[in-house]
Simulated assay, not measured.
Amino acid sequence: MLVDLRQYTLHPGRRDELIDLFDRYFVEGQEATGMQLVGQFRDLDDPDRFVWLRGFPDYESRGKALSDFYGGPVWKAHREAANATMLDSDNALLLKPLLVREGYPEPGSIRPPIGAADVPPSFGAADVPPSIVAGAVYHRSSLSDGFTDFFRNDIEPALSEAGARPVAVFETYPAENNFPALPLRDDPVLVWLTTFAGPASYDAYRDRLATSPKWRDHLEPELTRLSATPPQHLRLTPTTRSALR
């Protein structure tokens, strides 16, 4: 399995337009070519960012599936509307799994049908979204920098103790982009993701981590030392038809 993690910067106020296209047309449209739509999300810290993940059985199938979709009728019918919402769609990473646990969706996972009521973009409404998907993107100096072992041996146990046991951990898959029409970043990263029942459980995890002496005095400084740039913390709310939630 390989995964594209894609983060789009959109024109102000147009995120829900793109989400409607995704949830209505691009989920089944892409899965019909052999991809897995893992999840689609609103970034809770940026109203104009849309984040999504799609999976592929392997490297070779990735090139064929992308060619089939972007050369096929679904994309051709809706590409102008989708592209009109986007300022930048080049923030994309090709990742391989280091760990996948229960909670990460299997291919073919059941999701709400097309037309199901969408979740609101904030937590102010009465029908609060049921979950938060959170994690981080750690930017590294190289794939041989010892970061993976440090994460497995030290960071992951600390996250789990604070209430954020990762359901998936990925790192950069170092290969030539086999669908160059869609650019990929080639910088080495490690990405982890998990799910929370809602804002309260997420905030409790952040509080526990911030008040942990081990995290504050040892692990966070070592993270800073090993990271090429500051990490990107992800705090996302799934769209109605996101499989990961």
Rank of each mutant, 00 (worst) to 15 (best):
P57A: 02
L37Y: 01
L44M: 12
V51T: 15
M35T: 15
Y59Q: 06
R62V: 01
W52S: 05
L66M: 15
M35Q: 14
F41D: 04
V27R: 05
F56Q: 13
M35V: 04
A65Y: 05
F50W: 15
W52V: 00
E60F: 09
D43C: 07
E28R: 11
Y59L: 09
E28V: 05
Y59F: 14
K64S: 07
G71N: 05
V74H: 05
G55P: 13
F22H: 11
P57S: 02
V51E: 09
Y25R: 14
F50G: 08
R15S: 08
G55D: 10
F56C: 09
I19W: 07
P73D: 14
L21K: 06
G71H: 03
R62K: 14
G71P: 01
D45N: 14
Y59W: 11
L44P: 00
S61M: 01
E60S: 11
D16M: 10
R54D: 02
V27L: 10
P47N: 12
G29L: 06
Q30H: 13
D48T: 07
Q30M: 11
E60G: 06
D46W: 06
F22Y: 10
G34N: 11
Y25A: 10
Q40I: 10
R62Q: 07
L44H: 02
G29P: 00
I19E: 14
L21P: 00
D46P: 06
G55H: 12
D20A: 13
R49Q: 14
A32Y: 02
L18C: 08
R15W: 05
D46G: 12
L18I: 08
V38M: 14
F26K: 05
I19G: 11
Y70Q: 03
Q36R: 08
G72T: 04
R15T: 11
E31G: 05
I19P: 00
D43M: 11
Q30W: 02
D20W: 15
L44A: 13
M35R: 14
P57E: 11
P73Y: 00
G72C: 12
Y59N: 10
G71Q: 03
I19A: 13
A65V: 04
Q30P: 00
E17I: 13
E17D: 15
D58I: 03
V74Q: 08
A65W: 02
E28C: 03
I19Y: 06
K64P: 02
V74D: 06
L37E: 00
V27E: 03
G39R: 01
D46C: 08
P47V: 09
G39C: 13
R24Q: 08
D48L: 13
P57W: 01
A32I: 02
R24Y: 04
G71Y: 04
V51Q: 10
V38A: 06
P57Y: 01
A65P: 07
Y70H: 15
